[in-house]
């Protein structure tokens, strides 16, 4: 079956005038599109490999005066199209501020939040929508495989990938999951991979079906809290590798520890640009200082998203953490 392009998946969700503008995008912008930004009263804006682009009624413009302005009605229409005219069907996702879209794309929302106790009850009066275009870069994690997979023991090392936002953590983690799940058909066997995809970013599930390739031996728990999801996988799917995105909460650390004790390997990501930032978060500090992660891979955008800055292991990892701790104390 022919894979549908992002244009076929996203454009029907936009109001007709915006759809027509987007359909006439120059190929250089369309091919490297990362985000579609809609803010009430602000210019229709895109972020692509070419940088920020403002759109007027006949395509990209250089002056703000010529840019097409977004209205509140545009955002409401986008929301209704994305939910298939059924807010009730997606209200749990909306409370978390995003919606998963067909094709693995995602839309984030901001607006007026109505709280009930400490919980978000509803997000209404939207003021901005950010549509993030999912792109799968198959093979980007191949250079990391020798560091993550231990050929002698035929096991996957507990690995944490860290970087600032938008530096390619999730893309790298998804590709690692795919590579480990599929195996290479020769010396590296395929592993049973359990993916806890709390924000539907890793597998890009839409109605429960992964829209991005995460490998043939991968089981995906979509929209499930990480800690609960890891335990569910351990109990029900006997994973050899557990993959999850953005560790950070105390319960995540406890679940990782328990999962490791069952014999599963952990592949995870965390926000942070250096050891100091990681150490300042108690749950990550606990996991790192107890030597739970055998490898820490640091990514950046220096040469584009997914640039591998460093891979720490053993003594070097401990020294890096120590330097981070001293830095954090200062």
């Amino acid at each position: 079956m022919k894979k549908r392009t992002w244009q076929e998946q996203i454009l029907p969700l936009l109001p007709l005038p915006l759809r027509e503008i987007m359909a006439a995008l120059p190929p250089a912008v369309a091919d490297s599109l990362e985000e579609i930004r809609l803010r009430v009263g602000q210019p229709f804006m895109l972020h692509s490999g070419q940088g920020e682009v403002w759109l007027g009624h006949s395509g990209p413009v250089v002056s703000l005066d010529e840019a097409c302005r977004i209205t509140a009605a545009d955002l409401q229409e986008v929301l209704l199209q994305m939910t298939e005219f059924s807010l009730y069907a997606r209200d749990e996702e909306l409370k978390r501020g995003y919606l998963a879209l067909p094709g693995g794309h995602r839309a984030g929302f901001t607006g007026r939040v109505v709280m009930e106790g400490n919980q978000v009850k509803v997000l209404r009066d939207l003021n901005a929508v950010n549509i993030r275009i999912a792109r799968q870069f198959k093979g980007v994690a191949v250079p990391l495989l020798p560091h993550v997979y231990c050929a002698e023991q035929q096991r996957v090392r507990h690995t944490l990938i860290v970087s600032a936002p938008q530096a390619g953590k999730t893309t790298m983690l998804r590709d690692l999951a795919r590579l480990l799940s599929n195996g290479d058909g020769q010396r590296r066997p395929g592993f049973k991979v359990g993916i806890v995809d709390e924000r539907s970013e890793l597998a890009g599930c839409f109605r429960g079906e992964p829209q991005l390739d995460v490998g043939m031996r991968s089981d995906v728990l979509d929209g499930c809290a990480k800690a609960e999801g890891m335990m569910m996988l351990v109990r029900s799917m006997s994973p050899q590798v557990i993959v999850t995105d953005e560790l950070g909460r105390a319960e995540d650390a406890r679940a990782v520890e328990e999962a490791v004790n069952t014999g599963a390997s952990i592949l995870a990501t965390a926000h942070g640009q250096n050891a100091g930032e990681l150490i300042r978060r108690p749950s990550l500090a606990y996991l790192l200082e107890n030597g739970l992660f055998e490898r820490v891979i640091v990514l950046s955008r220096r040469h584009g998203p997914g640039t591998v800055e460093n891979i720490y292991t053993g003594q070097a990892l401990q020294e890096w953490l120590r330097a981070g701790r001293e830095c954090s104390v200062d």
Binding site: T83, E84, F85, S86, Y88, A89
Partner: peptide, 12 residues
């Protein structure tokens, strides 16, 4: 359909 399975309106 809405209460038990949260089926989107067109399918419901």
């Amino acid at each position: 359909e809405i209460g038990y399975t949260a089926t989107p309106l067109p399918r419901a």
